[in-house]
């Protein structure tokens, strides 16, 4: 289950998209999310699809790989679609049975909603798939640093994210160990109703919490020993630098955005 989720996963490859500055990618994704909400016609969605698919191709990430990542959230997309399908009023009724009514407006809304969610997830997962976690947090830190003046702790946020990412595999391993240790002592995690199963998690979570606190304490000491004193006067091994390709990416994106808005005016369907 955990390995199924491709959102937030990094897909290492050599590509133009991988080499883009993380700041460019983060900002582009933010704008992309807004643009997706402005698409109002099927032709617009076709432009969107073309854009996303060609981005995947450029990033050398198989579209299949992204689609597989959609599986765990398919359920939510389906629910959203059903709600839109049955609960939208207005338009011509095309289907009616008992309390269920489908109008052409509802159908249109439902399909749009599904497409919108799909493209949102595909676009945003392209960011994490093509940007290593360390570059991602670096990019965030640099983008947030101008807000330091109004009290946004940019360095601290990125350090927290880095440490969190660093410790995910360590804690997963530890959880596995604790589960085995508790099973060996006769703990049962797989039977009973939901409440029972939730209760069975307590003997896993408590040791995990205690050990996390101990780890945090040791890590803090180790960081102090290595002269850590916050973001002040800190230099970086790998500095982020904008290149020509970043400007080029913005240009392409501008063309794409213009195309999307044009479809809104040109096509009613």
């Amino acid at each position: 289950m955990i390995t199924d989720i491709t959102i937030g996963q990094f897909f290492p490859a050599e590509s133009v998209i991988h080499r883009l500055d993380p700041r460019t990618k983060i900002l582009l994704v933010l704008v992309y999310v807004v643009v997706v909400f402005f698409v109002k016609s099927f032709v617009g969605y076709m432009v969107l699809a073309l854009f996303v698919i060609s981005c995947c191709a450029m990033a050398r990430v198989p579209v299949r790989f992204i689609l597989r990542g959609l599986k765990p959230i398919m359920f939510f997309i389906l629910i959203t679609a059903l709600f839109n399908l049955f609960l939208t009023s207005g338009g011509v009724i095309i289907f009616h049975w008992w309390i269920f009514t489908i109008t052409d407006e509802g159908l249109r809304f439902a399909v749009f909603m599904v497409l919108r969610l799909l493209f949102l997830i595909m676009g945003t997962s392209l960011l994490t798939l093509t940007t290593s976690p360390i570059l991602l947090t670096d990019g965030m830190e640099r983008l947030l640093s101008p807000f330091g003046k109004i009290g946004v702790p940019a360095h601290e946020i990125s350090m927290m994210m880095t440490i969190a990412l660093r410790f995910i595999p360590t804690l997963l391993e530890e959880t596995d160990k604790i589960i085995k240790a508790q099973s060996a002592r006769g703990a049962d995690f797989d039977s009973g109703n939901l409440v029972r199963r939730a209760k069975a998690m307590v003997p896993i979570l408590i040791p995990l919490f205690i050990s996390s606190f101990r780890r945090a304490d040791e890590l803090a000491t180790a960081m102090e020993c290595r002269c850590y004193r916050g973001g002040k006067n800190r230099t970086r091994l790998n500095k982020l630098e904008y290149g020509r390709r970043d400007a080029f990416a913005w240009l392409i994106f501008a063309v794409f955005t213009a195309a999307v808005f044009a479809t809104n005016f040109l096509f009613a369907f």
């Binding site: 880095t162 180790a222 290595r226 002269c227 800190r234 790998n238």
Partner: peptide
């Protein structure tokens, strides 16, 4: 060793202390 490695890539972690000390890249 797990509780003294700070970042997700080996060389970034080794760079941690000199980065804190403000050593040029």
């Amino acid at each position: 060793p797990d509780n003294q490695i700070v970042t997700t890539i080996v060389e970034e972690d080794v760079a941690f202390a000199p980065e804190n000390m403000g050593v040029p890249p």
